[in-house]
Amino acid sequence: MNVIISSIDFIYNWARSNSIWPMTFATSCCGIEMMQTSAANFDIARFGSEVFRATPRQADLLICAGTITHKMAPALLKLYQQMPEPKYVIAMGACTCGGGMFTDSYSVVNGIDKIIPVDIYLPMCPPKPEALLDSLIKLQKQIRKETILDRQKYIAGHISALKLDENEDLLIEDSGIIVQSWGLTGDLNEGLDKDLSGGPAYEF
């Protein structure tokens, strides 16, 4: 039985690990290095990851390249939830690993592992393209070690710390505290009835 499963695992993981499709999620300067990695000099296609998808539903890997602000955090969580399993996350850059130089800032999330589970941490500011390729190879090695029997273990390890409510505000699931309401969706309809053609509405 084990022989059969390990053979299936080998083929399955070989195929999976050599065709990791990343999602383009470049939120700041690390995104430039990510683009550089996919360009001709470094050529991420050598590792089968050249197919950058613009939608989370076709992606296996979320390369979070750049600072995540509180305002971006619900969007990050929603994109992560929209990715089909099995899904992997590379936290690229010092900001996504632990806040980086914005640790004491009022607007920056101190590491995306406060929100979503992270598989590979890549701390530099910003990481060189070689470093991103190295983290991709490490992820491939990690994928090749997995077995299809560990499905439950995988699911247990991929629970996000925060949740989204129906208004897409971030909240802590245990206590139900709404972290902040950034008006990502709720206020969108509010301004529609205003006539903004002449600038802000004032009584002169």
Partner: peptide, 9 residues
């Protein structure tokens, strides 16, 4: 910054 809503951060 001492907002308890942001204690998770």
């Amino acid at each position: 910054q001492n907002d308890e809503r942001l204690a998770w951060n």
